[in-house]
Every structure is written in structure tokens, then in C-alpha cells.
């Protein structure tokens, strides 16, 4: 049973630390860095899903995260290419 708690609290730590890192972490002025940092809370919440045995949701989430990353990176690359100043 200890395992469950290890997963859960690791997940919690990752989610919180990851979101702090995304908001005020070093170098987040660069959108790419920010997107990579969002992967940390994503992994953290995967662990929380695992704790609750939401495995189907977990599989879907893993796939969806990859897609979201792709979409965001597309936007970043496109905007960078345009030289858009937001």
C-alpha cells in the first residue's frame, strides 16, 4: 500500500514544482522552454491518475499530451517564423 502513497505524493510534488517552474522558472521567457516545463506537471498528473487506477484515462492523457505539445509547438514555430511581436 505504501506504493500508492509514493506515487501519489511524487505526482503531487511534480505537479506543483512543475507548474511553479512553468510560471517563474529560469528561462521561461522562451516559449519553447515553457512548453518543455509544462511536461513536468503532465507527468505528475499521470502519476496521480495511476494512484487512482485511472489507467484508461492515463493512456489517453499520455497521447493527448503529445498532441497538445505538437499543437503548441506549431503555434510557437509559426509565430516565430512570422516574426510576430506579441
Amino acid at each position: 500500500m505504501l506504493d500508492v502513497y509514493v506515487w501519489f505524493y511524487t505526482g503531487c510534488i511534480l505537479v506543483i514544482v512543475g507548474s511553479i517552474a512553468t510560471v517563474i522558472g529560469p528561462g521561461v521567457k522562451d516559449p519553447v522552454v515553457r512548453i518543455i516545463n509544462t511536461e513536468i506537471p503532465a507527468v505528475g498528473i499521470s502519476m496521480i491518475f495511476l494512484t487512482y487506477n485511472h489507467t484508461i484515462a492515463l493512456v489517453t492523457f499520455i497521447a493527448a499530451t503529445a498532441i497538445v505539445t505538437l499543437i503548441l509547438l506549431r503555434a510557437v514555430v509559426r509565430l516565430e517564423e512570422m516574426g510576430a511581436e506579441l
Binding site: T10, P26, V32, V33, I36, I40
Partner: peptide, 27 residues
């Protein structure tokens, strides 16, 4: 056991992502 080792791995990875500056290192 596997859980704690993986937890350690994940935490080290997270710390690494946050601390390292260059995107390639982060990957």
C-alpha cells in the same frame, strides 16, 4: 523498490528540466 527508485528518477528528471537552460538539455 521500483516505486521509490522511479520516484527518485522522476524527481531528478524534473529538477534537471527546471535547472538546465538549453532546450536540448531539457529534452
Amino acid at each position: 523498490n521500483l516505486s521509490t527508485v522511479s520516484a527518485g528518477l522522476a524527481l531528478i528528471g524534473a529538477a534537471g528540466i527546471i535547472m538546465l537552460k538549453k532546450p536540448i538539455d531539457k529534452v
